[in-house]
Design a protein around this nucleic acid. Sequence first.
DNA 1: CATGAATGAGTTTTCATTCAT
DNA 2: GATGAATGAAAACTCATTCAT
Lengths: 185, 185, 185, 185
Amino acid sequence: MSRGNTRQRIQDVALELFAERGYEKTSLREIAEQLDVTKAALYYHFKTKEDILLSIFEDLNRPIVELIAWGEQQPRTLETKKEILRRYGQALYDAEPLFRFMQENQASIRELSLGERIKQRMFALSGLLVEQDAELIDRVRALTSLFAMHAGMFAMLQTDDDLKERQEAHLLVAHELITTAHHGD
Amino acid sequence: MSRGNTRQRIQDVALELFAERGYEKTSLREIAEQLDVTKAALYYHFKTKEDILLSIFEDLNRPIVELIAWGEQQPRTLETKKEILRRYGQALYDAEPLFRFMQENQASIRELSLGERIKQRMFALSGLLVEQDAELIDRVRALTSLFAMHAGMFAMLQTDDDLKERQEAHLLVAHELITTAHHGD
Amino acid sequence: MSRGNTRQRIQDVALELFAERGYEKTSLREIAEQLDVTKAALYYHFKTKEDILLSIFEDLNRPIVELIAWGEQQPRTLETKKEILRRYGQALYDAEPLFRFMQENQASIRELSLGERIKQRMFALSGLLVEQDAELIDRVRALTSLFAMHAGMFAMLQTDDDLKERQEAHLLVAHELITTAHHGD
Amino acid sequence: MSRGNTRQRIQDVALELFAERGYEKTSLREIAEQLDVTKAALYYHFKTKEDILLSIFEDLNRPIVELIAWGEQQPRTLETKKEILRRYGQALYDAEPLFRFMQENQASIRELSLGERIKQRMFALSGLLVEQDAELIDRVRALTSLFAMHAGMFAMLQTDDDLKERQEAHLLVAHELITTAHHGD
DNA sequence: CATGAATGAGTTTTCATTCAT
DNA sequence: GATGAATGAAAACTCATTCAT
């Protein structure tokens, strides 16, 4: 059954636990136990605990990096911006455990200087949602549009609205924000 | 020498360290050392480490609880809503270390079931920003307006814009969102 | 209500707890809390924790010391011996918490060199149950008769026999043992 | 260097120290130091301090469990009963440190609910020393015969009689008790 | 590919005790 | 007759990590 893919299985279980109980509170013993291997086995696949986290981040971060790269190639039309927001929402949704983890473990994240990279990404993305020389108010609108998507994730675990409908509403509000920004008012 | 204020001093130092390095990574030894008392002294004032965190939360949370109470007494005019957002922004700003801490330690927070309470408060507040029977899209706008203020905190540590101006821009965007919501789209 | 008798109350509560959870596992905090005073108050009445235990032992030990003294004054008849056993059983029963405590905390007891004293008492008592120059087998019978009474305490918490009847049976068996010993066979 | 025997060595040293200073007063540090390993090593082999004690008990208890099982297979003749007492005495003697420990740490023992099991065994054994439907007095005699053996252990550390002779005398008294019981008074 | 055995450095927590007030 | 505030020493336990096999 599980042959050769132990590395992947470690990442899966680790992310699950990191997202659930937090990075610090998750011990390698727990990860090992859930995988039914010994702690020492983890060290065959990863140099340190940090290493496990970094590798997960690297993997699940890729879609957003690619989104930024893609966005940079596109003409900065309103359509492009909307597409970026749509894809961003999708990426959040797809990597939900990672998003949850990142939301909830920023302290650990900062120490690994992942924080910097996340912020860079946020600003890079929000930069794609306004004109190069946009005014402050428009940059704020753009950044807030990303947060509108975050609010969607936040609400996800909480409300009893229809999930799909809710996500679409968040996307809509995000669109409003950048549409206003796009016109430069 | 130091009279009845040790309890307060513990809270201050603890919050500072919790916000700086995270709850899990902050040891009681560090707190005690920075206060120049023994670890045991902390236990005279608080039953557990968790207890320290809870008491801090309780204290710094009060302004927001009061804001909600106040908001519930007011007529639900646009002016009231704007005032709520303004005060919310102020509360975030005043309790900035706590806010930072909460943003960054949600994993720890959840385990203490503070998460629930925070979410409740977010939804309570956003409820005050729309009419009772508002449509989904307007409720999303209201929630996002609160997140616009969070985005302000997020940006604070990052951009080189003028701080005051930036906060005002975030407040403005938040206003736009609820103004749209107020009119019912 | 409680005036002047705090010392006594401390002893009562302490013995109760010592017997229930053991000497080591009972903390002064627990004793103080149950009495609704502070730990420091205990130190007004007793110099140390050990001191509390010693004072209790002294008090509740007195009946047995007196029994030995009484026994030494009596003619060493079979009647006397039976009376000693009866009174010993009664003393065990009366000071049941202390007996329970002593049974269960001999380790602590030894460290306070109470162990020596208890053994001395046991041998003193069993000495009163045989002639001065009795043979080994009779001295063993005498010692065992005391243990027959202990067995009674042991059984007390366990069987569903009628309690009084049970105690009487133990006394009877103890009598048999010393009667055999008394005749020197 | 030291191969698979560390676990055993921990048990040996632990029992020695538990018997000597009591369970509560023996710290894992002491055990580790005496074994020249770290405390953490103890935790590799046993989950908790309690666990060490339980495992010792389990091991040294086996002979008595086996004795009970053996006794249940035998015809309930006087010879069998005498043999049970002899073997019981031997088992006590063999596991002398454990017996001593159990005598002296019943408070700790009870919390681990070992107390129940010990009592059960005592009653099981004494049940084998009388007829099925024996009268109370005979059951008391049987139980007391076991306590006669305990008295032997008690005396062991105390008197200056010849050890072997003393043990035999205790066995003899125990025999008397069950012989009387066997004939039905 | 993995385990079994172990470590060193740390953690939170508890306790008996002290002393100025 | 007592409390409030604190301490010093120690306890049980956990964790990431290592390494010979």
